[in-house]
Design a binder for these strands. Structure first.
Length: 734
RNA sequence: GGGCGAUUAGCUCAGUUGGUAGAGCAACUCAUUUACACUGAGAAGGUCGGGGGUUCAAGUCCCUCAUCGCCCACCA
């Protein structure tokens, strides 16, 4: 027996070495696996932000995927897990800008676009190794030879190609639409990056000619020359649609037009409202419907424009009170409600109050019909007409993407129903630049700049989710028609956090459906968030963060993996409990000691001797051996079924339980007298039983606790193994 | 405002198609010159949030209420 077993198991001495052995073996790459006839089984790693560090959420997500990948690999599948990182454009640029300000006192504009992009790229590249090494520490069996970065050449080509094809299909268009403008970040942001915060403010009632209108935002009212009432509102039956009324307003008399539309809520206030199409989505939609004038009142910096007359140039907050004062002086204030509670839109990243604006932006049209050239998605015929929205719905309802968690499926479908066109342009510098060039009135879209002089590229970059949405196939080098793409797409499954269901999952379905006519993945299992023990989110401000690498240092990666997986079903939140992780460190040591005991007591095991076959029906004196053998088989079948059905937490708990309380407490205790009895045949049978249970349980534990099991495997007698490395050993029962 | 979920032992959570309530941790008793930087044996602990219904049978299915959480949403 190896002397290493005389000491307790020490993960620190083992994990680095074992990971190196795996990497050197080449088996992370499915093309190098011993069994080349297996079915492909692909997972793409949700690419972590290149400038980030590993947090407990990643550790959990990586473990989930690694368990599945390792299980499938041992079952003989050609398992491929593709690693990658994301540039997360806005986050990265913001980070570099912050450093720039701090270290050199400069802004991005001082540097200029080219230099800024160069520095950001370098910064991203420099920090990428940090997170990748952290992922390795978790034991993730990723095929590093297929590593992808969202801004590398191949992914860049994929993004440009995707854009061009959708542009040519009429699904990407440029239009003046109302968007969420972040005055602080000086960029548009997507609906998903907007967070609503409850705020108590004043609500004003103003006299607007014969009407009384309510508003929380007097500063936008300069351009309001339409008053909207509900067609059924008896209070206003005297007025007709389109009727013009002259009235006194903030800066003098104006002509207002009456609009009758059911958008006005009769229950709300006086039932009459004025509209500001340039700065409100509802108002914009009304203006589009009736072809009304739209006027900008507030500029990109949150200041009032000349239309505000004497208030021009003022900041919103400053202007608000002054406008009210003026209206008050003119006797136009009916009343002011001091306790008005409403939600205001703020930018998730900068915290600034969002100012809706009409701007020229690029959009993906989700409601426009197109002809889908090719489709493997059940319910969608190749060559049929469909909208992206319908496609996204059908992919899930028709089963191309299996979303077994009913609650999340409902959430997804509900979200699809309410989907608006997706604004994909961002006014930042770092990221995929929009592949469109302008020259006078000409416009060109292509994967590279057009021939000839005088063309200027669109200054904006794409929403980072645009490239992320291509991830399942851009990582397989699409648009090239590679063997990889043919073999490994659609991917087998994806396990994102529920936070990201709409943001990412749905958009992958959109892109994969349009460009390949395939689902991006066959199954999606949404997991919960890892929270602090008190149920609160981990956050910097609460200073309750846990660094997974500290846990690895203290208890080993295997213990951390088990501690995260066992104990909560996939989909519900996980409360992080260090005690549990400590418990699994003890378990790793238990496995270690069981091995020590068995190897010590099986030194003289003679595999050549004629063994008693206790696996048959007529077992005679060896009925206990047979019972234990069959019990093992039953347990492993059960656990295998759980793994096949992604019930990882159950499988993990069951193997833990079997190993400790059946194998160690019961079977080994039972074996002690038999090993000493002096009956050679009985001893061999017992040694054989113990060795085979050990080998089989080590195999089943491997996906969960890869390091300690691989280390033990290297010390097991060769006749128990088909493969030198446990990671490619065939799964028991198969 | 709309949608989704949760409520089970002191704590954290399982409970897969309805069939005698489970685990880990903590706490308790005992053992321990033992493969175990510890481990083993044992005992204790729950009217499964409240109420109603379906059923031979409900933690599980249906209705309703309460509390908590999350997501979405333009209420001027």
């Amino acid at each position: 027996m190896d002397d290493k077993f005389l000491k307790p198991y020490n993960p620190k001495e083992v994990e680095g070495k074992i990971y190196q052995t795996w990497e050197d073996s080449g088996y992370f790459n499915p093309d190098k696996l011993p069994n080349q006839s297996g079915e492909p089984f692909t997972v793409v790693l949700p690419p972590p932000n290149v400038t980030g560090t590993l947090h407990v959420g990643h550790a959990y997500e990586d473990t989930l995927q690694d368990i599945v990948i390792r299980f499938q690999r041992m079952r003989g599948k050609r398992a491929l897990w593709i690693p990658g990182t994301d540039s997360a454009a806005i986050a990265t640029q913001a980070r570099v800008e912050k450093n720039l300000q701090k270290d050199e006192g400069k802004t991005r504009h001082d540097l200029g676009r080219e230099e800024m992009v160069k520095r950001t790229y370098e910064f991203a590249k420099n920090s990428e190794s940090t997170i990748l090494n952290q992922v390795r520490k978790m034991g993730a069996s990723l095929d590093w030879s297929r590593y992808a970065y969202t801004l590398d050449d191949k992914r860049n080509l994929a993004v440009f190609t995707a854009f061009k094809r959708m542009y040519d299909a009429g699904l990407i268009y440029r239009g003046s639409r109302i968007i969420n403008w972040d005055p602080k970040g000086q960029t548009t942001i997507s609906d998903d990056e907007v967070v609503y915060e409850e705020e108590k403010s004043k609500f004003y009632y103003f006299k607007y000619g014969p009407f009384v209108i309510g508003t929380a935002r007097p500063e936008t009212k300069f351009g309001d020359k339409y008053v909207v009432v509900h067609p059924d509102d008896s209070r206003y039956s005297a007025y007709t649609h389109g009727q013009k009324i002259e009235l006194e307003w903030i800066n003098g008399p104006i002509i207002a037009t009456v609009i009758k539309d059911s958008a006005a809520d009769m229950e709300m206030g006086t039932g009459a409202m004025t509209i500001t199409p340039w700065h409100s989505l509802v108002d914009f939609e009304l203006a589009e419907k009736y072809d009304l004038d739209k006027e900008q009142v507030i500029d990109k910096y949150g200041k009032l424009l000349p239309i505000a007359g004497e208030f021009a140039g003022m900041k919103i907050t400053e202007a608000r009170e002054k406008i009210v004062e003026k209206l008050q002086a003119k006797g136009l204030v009916e009343k002011i409600d001091e306790n008005y509670v409403h939600n205001i839109a703020t930018s998730e990243r900068t915290g600034a109050t969002i100012e809706p604006q009409i701007m020229e932006q690029w959009f993906v049209a989700v409601d426009k019909e197109f002809t889908i050239p090719y489709s493997e998605i059940p319910g969608i015929e190749s060559g049929s007409k469909i909208t992206l929205k319908e496609m996204m719905r059908t992919a899930v309802e028709g089963g191309a993407v299996d979303m077994p968690q009913e609650g999340f499926r409902k959430t997804y479908l509900h979200w699809i129903l309410n989907l608006h066109d997706w604004c994909i342009s961002r006014q930042i510098w770092f990221g995929h630049r929009i592949p469109v060039w302008y020259k006078n009135n000409e416009i060109y879209c292509g994967v590279s700049a057009p021939e000839g002089d005088g063309w200027e590229q669109d200054p904006d970059v794409l929403d980072t989710w645009f490239s992320s949405a291509l991830w399942t196939f851009s990582t397989l080098d699409w648009p090239e028609k590679t063997v990889d793409l043919k073999t490994f797409h659609p991917t087998a499954f994806m396990s994102p956090a529920y936070e990201i269901l709409q943001l990412w999952v749905s958009r992958m379905i959109l892109m994969s459906g349009f460009h390949l006519g395939q689902a991006p993945f066959k199954k999606v299992l949404i997991h919960g968030l890892v929270r602090a023990k008190d149920g609160r989110k981990f956050s910097k401000s609460l200073n309750n963060g846990v660094d997974p690498l500290d846990m690895v240092e203290k208890y080993g990666a295997d213990a951390l993996r088990m501690g995260l997986i066992v104990g909560s079903a996939i989909g519900s939140d996980i409360k992080f409990d260090e005690q549990r992780i400590r418990g699994y460190k003890l378990f790793a040591n238990k496995i270690w000691n069981v091995t020590r005991f068995i190897l010590e007591n099986a030194k003289d095991f003679d595999s050549e001797a004629k063994l008693v076959d206790y696996t048959g029906t007529d077992t005679g004196a060896y009925s206990m051996h047979a019972t234990y053998h069959n019990q093992l088989k039953t347990s492993l079948e059960d656990i295998t079924l759980d793994l096949e059905n992604y019930r990882l937490y159950l499988a993990g708990e069951k193997i833990y339980h079997y190993f400790w309380h059946t194998f160690a407490d019961e079977i080994i205790e039972w074996s002690k007298p038999l090993l000493k009895s002096g009956d050679e045949k009985e001893k061999w049978a017992t040694q054989h039983l113990l060795l085979s249970i050990l080998a089989d349980t080590i195999k089943v534990l491997h996906p969960f606790m890869p390091f300690v099991t691989e280390e033990i495997w290297s010390s097991l007698p060769a006749q128990l193994k088909k493969q030198k490395l446990l990671m490619v050993e065939p799964w028991p029962l198969s």
